[in-house]
């Protein structure tokens, strides 16, 4: 009975808390969305980035995989799905490269947005992002090495 009487107060508190959290998230993510669109419009995800080439090779990825990788890494699997899938088809990525790309991206994607969200709740960026990057790079590199030998 006591809890029932407190229901309006609980709902009010929840509404306030929820709206504040929405506002906080929107303040972080909306600038990111504009940033992504600007980056895409100026072709950041399409540039060859020659310095990354040797790094990609160690991951078993050719130059064609760079665009889908950057799209997934920064935009996320769902948001970047359109680019990810159409580019992988367009670049005619071989089966093994598609697998390497998928292994990397399932462990590590939408890195800015996801990390920022949990940082809002008080999490540490290093603790949340570090292991993801290490796992993604480690697993993909291991897969590439195993394929070569």
């Amino acid at each position: 009975m006591e809890t029932l009487a407190a229901l309006p107060a609980t709902l009010w508190q929840g509404l306030q808390g929820g709206l504040i959290l929405c506002l906080e998230i929107a303040l972080v993510v909306v600038p990111l969305l504009f940033g992504y669109e600007l980056a895409a419009a100026y072709g950041i995800f399409e540039r060859p980035w020659p310095r990354l080439k040797p790094l990609l090779a160690r991951l078993g990825l050719g130059p064609g995989a760079l665009m889908p990788l950057l799209a997934g890494l920064f935009l996320g699997l769902v948001y970047g799905a359109g680019i990810l899938l159409s580019l992988s088809d367009e670049q005619d990525l071989p089966r093994q490269e598609r697998l390497a790309l998928a292994v990397f991206l399932v462990t590590c994607h939408a890195v800015v947005e996801d990390t920022a969200l949990f940082m809002l709740l008080g999490g540490s960026a290093l603790a949340m992002l570090g292991p993801r990057v290490i796992l993604a790079v480690g697993l993909t590199a291991w897969l590439a090495r195993r394929r070569r030998s």
Binding site: D114, T115, F118, A127, M128, P131, R132, L135
Partner: peptide
């Protein structure tokens, strides 16, 4: 705790 939750769910 948020970091642990964020890491599990991030992956």
């Amino acid at each position: 705790q948020v970091s642990v939750l964020g890491l599990i769910l991030g992956i």
